[in-house]
Design a binder for these strands. Structure first.
Length: 562
RNA sequence: CGGGGUGUAGCGCAGCCCGGUUAGCGCGCUUCGUUCGGGACGAAGAGGUCCCCGGUUCGAAUCCGGGCACCCCGACCA
């Protein structure tokens, strides 16, 4: 492709509304332009990369027997009512105003719809169906460029199996295919255990890329390789040891003491002697949560324990339920379910709120003073805590979710009546899995990981062009002749070449654009070298330069690019 | 949805507090000339509903009210 004729609008300056690296690079290199918040147009250069990523995905999906579909993004709302997900998605689901349609945020329903009409026998199973398609989600706050948009490209696939064992196989195949895909794309990623969330199902894992621009938080142990989304992560922390002797419960006046830190300061005690209370509402019922000291409640874990959505109690509700404000709430006398974090298992001599403003209780013995306690792991893990499966230490950091694989089970097939007959003639719901990759996030993550102060550094697999050829001074006929000839040779040899043939751009301009656009190999045709019948080859990744004889160029390029 | 910020030429910004010539600067763009291996130089140009609507005023980019858009933090997030 000739740069003089292509639409690759590079930017010297950083547009003011781009903050994250990948976003800046996409804008500067002319790959994307924003149309509206969270809605981006891919320009030719960016779309070329998207096509490369898609191709890798297709190859690996086809390799595990996947069959590519193309489903409509515009869906009748009634299909979404069948699984009750109009309500579940809430405001995230785009709804069409002048007809009863929605814009699909994912495609479980539509795939299940097709499955139920066709997959009637165990002989029809297993099936793996996938597509690469635009999804729509009405995100409240799009951010970080393409990383969280209202419209994005996703590869979503769905497996249909007759038995849980077969689902395990489909899941495992996807796991391996995803590793191949991300490896081929040149991404450094890791795989974490995750929460299935509102998707339902029994198991799920996420493919994560470490990045400050990420919206997920993961805990990772270098020593053991343990990695988990903090939503489900556990750590090796010491539980409170029960004292030999339980003291009597005593009421203590604690004026203006609200937080655990203030309580410790006021009573000259350690935070591990305190039980912090949090009240949540699940359905219509209040639940009191007790945590050791300053431990934070992991709401995802709590939802799993309670089996439903929760929200923190409002200030007025707290007053009504306990007679006290936040900061003076405690387990003794609380009317409602009480769930205590494992770290406080059977603890005694604890300090907690008295359910009376400005008072706390000391000497609480959970086994003696509180009836009907349930225990569960409810903590959010913190950096520096022990790894749960080794003697290593957990590191907690943000990450971008690139892909997610789910064992869905029968949630959708049951709701939508996708049934098959097994060998004994008995009707069963099809067992499903669903698997997603954020295609444009692959691009964003790649850029987050492969850049320097000059711009992008493409590796062969995703590079929009393999070679960036520059004719430095295109007013000199010998340079025009030589670079045109090289352009022809390289193209004939099968390389995708971006040819900077702009007649009026200065050398420095071309060099900087080439470094910004970041093709793996730069071929520089200039006066000086040409006099010796040579051109210069520069490798973008390392900055190494080689003077190459004209008739050796193809060999040299082959050496680098294959 | 809460908090903060921004909106002036294609891009980056100044001007606004304290209203008053013809709204300015850098980059980019057009034409001509000189340059030509790390974002050149000179000359001449083109390009604006100063986000929108309303108000105050003799007069509004500037002051006041309302709205919209975008960015950041948080809440939320298969």
């Amino acid at each position: 492709m000739r740069l003089s004729k292509s639409f690759v609008p590079t930017l010297k300056e950083v547009p003011n509304d781009a903050i994250v690296k990948s976003h800046i690079l996409m804008l500067r290199s002319g790959m994307v332009r924003m149309l509206s918040a969270g809605i981006y147009s891919f320009l030719p250069l960016g779309y070329k990369v998207i096509k490369k990523i898609s191709q890798i995905i297709r190859e690996e999906m086809d390799a595990i027997g996947g069959q590519e579909f193309h489903l409509p993004a515009l869906n009748p709302r009634e299909i979404w009512e069948e699984t009750n997900r109009v309500e579940a998605f809430g405001d995230i689901l785009f709804q069409i105003k002048n007809r009863d349609y929605v814009l699909a945020p994912t495609h479980e329903e539509i795939m299940t719809y097709h499955a139920r009409n066709v997959l009637k026998s165990y002989k029809d199973l297993p099936q793996t169906w996938y597509q690469i398609q635009t999804k729509f989600r009405n995100e409240a706050r799009p951010r970080s460029g393409i990383i969280r948009g209202r419209q994005f490209l996703m590869k979503d696939s769905y497996s249909f199996d007759a038995t849980p064992e077969d689902l395990d196989k489909s899941y495992e195949q996807h796991y391996e295919a995803y590793r191949k895909i991300f490896d081929r794309c040149g991404l450094k990623y890791f795989i974490v255990g995750a929460s299935s969330g509102a998707m339902g199902g029994s198991g799920s894992q996420e493919f994560m890329v470490k990045s400050d621009a990420g919206e997920d938080t993961v805990a990772y142990c270098e020593t053991s390789g343990y990695a988990a989304n903090v939503e489900v992560a556990t750590s090796r922390v010491q539980a409170k040891v029960r004292d030999a002797k339980s003291e009597e419960v005593k009421e203590i006046s604690t004026p203006n003491v609200k937080s655990i830190d203030e309580l410790c300061e006021f009573l000259k005690i350690d935070e591990t002697q305190c039980a912090k209370s949090r009240v949540y509402i699940c359905g219509d019922s209040p639940v009191l949560i007790l945590m050791l000291g300053n431990d934070e409640v992991n709401e995802t874990k709590l939802e799993k324990v309670l089996g439903g959505a929760i929200r923190p109690a409002h200030i007025e509700e707290l007053k009504e339920l306990t007679g006290a404000d936040a900061g003076s709430i405690g387990p003794i006398g609380f009317k409602g379910r009480i769930i205590v974090d494992n770290r406080l298992k059977d603890a005694n001599n604890l300090y907690s709120g008295a359910n009376k403003n400005d008072y706390h209780l000391g000497g609480i013995d959970l086994t003696r003073d509180v009836k009907d306690i349930e225990y569960a792991d409810l903590r959010i893990v913190k950096s520096g805590e022990g790894c749960p499966i080794s003697d290593g230490t957990l590191e907690v950091f943000s990450a971008i979710e690139l892909g997610h694989i789910f064992k869905l089970g029968t949630k959708y097939s049951q709701a939508m009546g996708a049934m098959f007959l097994d060998e004994s003639g008995k009707e069963n719901p099809i067992i499903m899995g669903s698997y997603g990759i954020g295609v444009d996030r692959v691009l964003a993550c790649y850029l987050e990981q492969h850049n320097d102060e000059k711009g992008i550094i493409w590796e062969k697999a995703l590079a929009p062009y393999q070679i960036h050829l520059m004719g430095l001074n295109m007013r000199k006929q010998e340079i025009v002749d030589a670079s045109e000839k090289i352009y022809g040779q390289l193209s004939v040899a099968g390389y995708d070449v971006l040819f900077d043939d702009r007649p009026d751009a200065q050398a420095g301009f071309k060099f900087n654009d080439a470094d910004l656009l970041g093709m793996p190999v730069q071929v520089i045709v200039g006066d000086r070298k040409l006099k010796e019948n040579k051109v210069e080859v520069k490798l973008r990744a390392t900055g190494e330069r080689f003077d190459i004889e004209l008739n050796n160029l193809l060999t040299k390029v082959k050496e680098r690019l294959g």
